[in-house]
Amino acid sequence: MKALRKSLDALYLISGALAAMCLVAILLLIVVQMVARWTGEVFPGAASYAGYAMAGASFLAFANALNRGSHIRVSILLNALPDGPKRLLDIWCFGLAAAIAWYFTYYAYWFVYWSWKFNEVSQAQDATALWIPQSVMVVGGAILAIALTDNLLTLIVKGEHRLTRDIVDQSFGE
């Protein structure tokens, strides 16, 4: 059980770190493209690669952002309720969110499968086989779904979810 907990937390951390690296990749790609233009060189497909990195930076970050309480929700009702009903409402939220995330992941999987089967390639100059960058959507979607399910089960078993607020984020919030 402890091993599972540890590997799940590692999963969220690693995916977040990968997302951050995608952000750095966006920066580098754009800078290289710009410098290439200044010096009369060409970097074909830079815009597409930056787009894929953008997708990576988003999808891989979803679960990490969830656990750190970054995703926005309207919590007026949640805050107003006493503990028991609040827990039920939270179960509904995590349950529905997990269902949506799994639904998305399922269709994302088939979407990528058909991209691979149709041999779909990027229409821009990079001509990348699209199933490769699109896979981050399946991976990221699955990690988000896992994180939501993880929280849902913890909530049912232990009575509270595992979302926290980042201390640095709070430091400017106070």
Binding site: Q33, R37, V42, F43, P44, A46, A47, A124, Q125, A127
Partner: peptide, 22 residues
Amino acid sequence: RSYNNATSRLAELTGMLPVTIE
């Protein structure tokens, strides 16, 4: 301004500098 391989190639063959602009 090039937006695909053909327009980049066109630039190359005519000695122009292809720049990618969305």
